[in-house]
């Protein structure tokens, strides 16, 4: 990842055998893009409709490998990975995002 990469990743916290990253995208993902991401990773998508009309979304990765949380009004994804050796999974998520 170079500084010019439109997708930027930042390590936020490592705690309780979990590692949290934020991924800054050029623009927020649409509902459809979240669904496609969930289908491709794969994971299970859930959503909460906020009073503002925006939607908070979470993709729970299979086999309790972690979760991805974001919203339709923010270009930031919050990625929590729970397994050792999660680097490959992070790469897989980034690859899926680049393919969108």
């Amino acid at each position: 990842m170079s500084p010019a990469d439109p997708i930027q990743v930042h390590l936020v916290r490592e705690c309780a055998q979990r590692t949290k990253y934020v991924i800054d995208l050029p623009e927020p993902l649409s509902l459809q893009a979240y669904q496609e991401l969930a289908d491709n990773l794969p994971g299970i998508l859930s959503s909460v409709f906020l009073p503002s009309g925006d939607v908070l979304l979470q993709i729970k990765l299979l086999e309790k490998e972690g979760s991805i949380t974001g919203s339709t009004n923010s270009a930031t994804l919050h990625v929590l990975l729970t397994k050792e050796g999660h680097g490959r999974l992070l790469e897989h998520i980034l690859q899926e995002l680049r393919n969108q």
Partner: peptide, 15 residues
């Protein structure tokens, strides 16, 4: 700090 760096914060407060 966790709240201020969360998707919920981004969606509800950050705007």
């Amino acid at each position: 700090g966790g709240i201020m760096c969360s998707a919920e914060w981004d969606a509800v407060v950050r705007p």
